[in-house]
Design a protein around this nucleic acid. Structure first.
Lengths: 195, 195
DNA sequence: TATATTTTAGCACATATGTTCGATAAAATT
DNA sequence: AATTTTATCGAACATATGTGCTAAAATATA
C-alpha cells in the first residue's frame, strides 16, 4: 500500500513538523528523501493524501498536515451533561484535552469523574476519562453511560444471569440494571489525572 | 506592552494554526486584522517575536510558531533507567507523550509504572506518570526516585520518627528508608493510562 | 518477452510570500 | 511647540514554492 519511499516521505514530514512546527516544502522533501524531481514528490504526496495519511491545501505553501503527528485537535472535556442537550453542546464544554495517541477517525470526548464509585478500578474523583464514542462498551469494559438522558456515569458493564448491569468498582455501591433509561455514550479508552 | 493590534494579530495567528495546522502568511494577517501594508504586519511581528510570543524562521513562508498555542514539545517517556546513564539518555527513550497543560519552563519526563506497589494510590501497572524534575517531592507527595543510580521507582515520601521513607501504596510492600543510595528524580504531577 | 504499472526526472510557468526602503500620520514625551 | 516614539502605508524586489506536462526508467504482471 505505502511504498518505501512514501514511508520515508511521511517520516520526514512528521519529523519536520515536530521539530520546526511547520511542514516542509515540496523541494525540501525532494532533497531530504533523495529525489531529484519535485514532481516525483508531488506524485507521492498525492498518494499519501489519498491514503489519508496527509492533508494539504492547494496552492498554499507549507500547508501539509499529518495525521500521524500532532492532531492538535483537542478532545472536548464535558462537565455536567444537561438534560436534552446534545452531548457536545457548548453548555457542557468546560475545556479541551490535547489528543495524544494514534487512534484516528474516532469520536473522542473527555468526562470528569465525579465520586469514588470506580475507585477500585483506579478511577479517582476528578480524573478525566477519554471516551471513544465509536466503540460500544462490551462485557468487562469500562464504559460511559447516560442515565435518563441527563446524568453521565462511568462504570463497568457486565452480564449477570442474562441481565446487563452497570457495575461500580467499589463495594459501597450497588449494581444498576441496564434498562431503557440507560444508554451508552462510548467506551473509556484512556485516563488522565492531574496531581 | 502588547498593543491592541498586536494582540489581535496574535489571536489571529493562534486561531489559524489551530484551525489549519499551519500559520498564516504576512499578507493573510494583513487582511485579517485590517491593515493595508504588509510592512506594518512585519513591524508588529517583530515586536511580538521580541516579546517572546512568536517565533519564526527568516525567508521561510508560513514559519510562524506561537508559544501560546500547541506546545508540541513532547515529554520524553523513559523506560528502564540504565546504570550510570544520564536520565534522558537515548537508550532509555521509548517514546513521547505530547505535552498538555500549561506548565512552562519545567523539566518534564514520563515514566512507565511497573508493578503494583502503588495500586492503592490509583497508579497501576503500565500507567505513565509525568514527573516534574524541577519539583522536589515533599512529605505526602508522590515522587520518582532513583535507587543505586540504576532503578527508578515511584512512591509516596513521608517522614516517620524523624526518618524519611519511600512508602508504597500497597500493604504487601514495605517502606524503604531513604539513604544515600536513593536520590529523587522529581515530583509526580500527572498520570496517563491507556486502556 | 510483451504489456501494464509504478516510480523518477527535467523543466518551465505562475504566483505565493518574505523583505526592504522611504514617506506619512498618530500618539506620547519633553 | 518641538521632539521622540509608535503605527501605518505603498510600492518594488527577489525568491520561495506549488503545479503541469512530457518522457524515461524501473518494476511488476501476464
Amino acid at each position: 500500500m505505502v511504498s518505501k519511499k512514501q514511508e520515508e516521505i511521511l517520516n520526514y514530514i512528521d519529523n519536520t513538523i515536530k521539530r520546526n512546527g511547520y511542514s516542509p516544502t515540496v523541494r525540501e522533501i525532494c532533497e531530504a528523501v533523495g529525489l531529484k524531481s519535485t514532481s516525483t514528490v508531488q506524485y507521492h504526496l498525492k498518494k499519501l493524501i489519498e491514503l489519508g495519511f496527509l492533508n494539504k491545501s492547494e496552492n498554499i505553501s507549507r500547508s501539509i498536515t499529518s495525521r500521524t503527528v500532532d492532531s492538535k485537535y483537542g478532545i472536548p472535556i464535558l462537565g455536567e451533561i444537561s438534560a436534552g442537550q446534545p452531548l457536545i453542546a457548548e453548555e457542557n464544554y468546560i475545556g479541551e484535552l490535547p489528543y495524544f495517541g494514534n487512534k484516528i477517525n474516532t469520536e473522542l470526548i473527555a468526562l470528569k469523574i465525579s465520586g469514588d464509585s470506580m475507585i477500585d478500578a483506579g478511577l479517582y474523583n476528578d480524573d478525566l476519562v477519554v471516551i471513544d464514542k465509536s466503540l460500544v462498551p462490551e462485557d468487562g469494559d469500562i464504559g460511559a453511560f447516560l442515565i435518563n438522558n441527563t446524568e453521565a456515569t462511568v462504570k463497568y458493564v457486565d452480564t449477570i444471569a442474562n441481565k446487563r448491569y452497570l457495575i461500580p468498582a467499589n463495594k459501597n455501591y450497588s449494581n444498576i440494571e441496564i434498562d431503557e433509561n440507560i444508554s451508552y455514550i462510548g467506551k473509556v479508552v484512556s485516563l488522565f489525572r492531574d496531581m
